[in-house]
Computed example of a mutant assay.
Amino acid sequence: MTAERALRLGTRRSKLAMAQSGHVADAVRQVTGREVELVEITTYGDTSREHLAQIGGTGVFVTALRDALTRGEVDFAVHSLKDLPTAQPDDLTLAAVPLREDPRDVLIARDGLKFTELPDGARVGTGSPRRMAQLNAYAKSHGMRIETVPIRGNIDTRIGFVEKGELDAVVLAAAGLSRIGRTEEVTDFLSTDIVLPAPGQGALAVECAATNGALAAALAELDDPFTRFAVTAERSLLAALEAGCSAPVGALADLLADGQIVKEMRLRGVVGTTDGSELVQLSTTGPVPTSHDEALALGRELSAEMLAKGAAGLMGERAL
């Protein structure tokens, strides 16, 4: 590859997107020896003030970046992988899925409170039906009374609701706070036994044109195989449930080890109504995938079990 011009990296304009794209840009400079410049692109999800479930959720943060790739305005793009629709366009390739950050959700609450310490009737803000479903279900089963409040906005806006006293707490992704250096504000890292993350949460997707084989090969140096197989299994579950990325679906694939020896991959999935009254939560285990098809099969297996338990009925109008 020649070094006559900088590679153009398409990114959303938010502080978080710029931070995570900056990390990828540094890594690409190292593996290619080329300069990388960030090209800021505004997406529909950034400009719309509606709730994500109302504007469709799927692809609202992605389409403008992909359009810029297709038009040749940028050479590659970085997405939060949980925002990607499960169907991959033929003209684009998912060149790399770098090592995943912490996939958990976290709580930022007033007075340094943990989730189980929140006062009776606490108002908890989140823009995610998935989080609402699981937080409400946990609260109901443990004799807590909380009110989940739909919110939108960037990290500063969401934390501001707590700082101004409008909410008792907000729930955010651990990975986002880590990438912008604000982990110290977290008051509780929520166990995945309480809240399963969104499929692909904590992972990034590096995408380029399928016809640019040389760039795709270079970007592949950033790929972490286990992260790719884990998120493939999670997204396979999401796709088989025919749910979009704003649906109340949580999934997490992780490794089960005996000492230093990795034995199996476990995939957990959950679907629920936002009020927490109904929840389908199941898991399956299998050999650690060594191929894309094996990872897909794990997700499809679990989705079939969840659908047999009534998961489809929990993703309709009531859930959103």
Rank of each mutant, 00 (worst) to 15 (best):
F61L: 12
L52R: 05
E73Y: 04
T2S: 12
A64G: 02
G22T: 07
T32M: 13
V39L: 04
L81Q: 07
V60M: 08
R66H: 13
R12N: 06
T43Y: 08
T63C: 01
L99Q: 15
R100N: 15
V97G: 07
H23R: 06
F76M: 03
R100G: 12
R49M: 14
V97A: 05
T93V: 15
V36W: 09
D90K: 14
R71D: 06
L69C: 02
P85D: 04
T58M: 05
G33K: 06
L38P: 01
G45E: 08
L94W: 10
A27K: 04
R5T: 14
T86G: 09
F61A: 05
V39E: 02
G45R: 12
E40M: 10
R66I: 00
G45T: 07
R100K: 14
A3V: 12
P89Y: 15
R100F: 13
L38T: 06
V39R: 08
A95D: 13
D26G: 06
V97E: 09
R100E: 15
H79N: 11
V36E: 01
V24Y: 04
V97Q: 01
E37Q: 03
V31Q: 10
T47G: 05
A19N: 13
E37W: 02
A17L: 14
R100H: 13
H51V: 08
P98D: 10
A77D: 11
R12C: 06
D67F: 04
V24N: 05
Q20A: 00
L92H: 01
T42H: 09
L69A: 11
T32P: 14
L16N: 12
S21Q: 01
T47S: 13
T70V: 15
A95M: 06
F61V: 00
A25E: 09
A3C: 14
G72R: 01
K82E: 15
G10L: 05
A64V: 00
H51C: 03
A68L: 07
R13T: 14
A87E: 15
D67K: 08
L65N: 04
Q54C: 11
R8P: 13
T70I: 13
A77E: 13
V97D: 09
S21A: 15
L94C: 08
Q30E: 14
Y44V: 13
G10R: 02
Q30A: 11
L94A: 08
A68C: 03
G22M: 08
V74D: 06
F76I: 00
D67P: 00
Q20D: 12
Q54N: 10
D26C: 02
G59R: 01
R66K: 04
L69N: 12
L9D: 01
G72C: 00
A77Q: 10
R5L: 08
P103V: 09
A64N: 03
T2V: 05
T32W: 10
L84C: 12
R71F: 00
A64T: 00
H51A: 10
L84K: 02
R66N: 06
T63R: 10
G10Q: 02
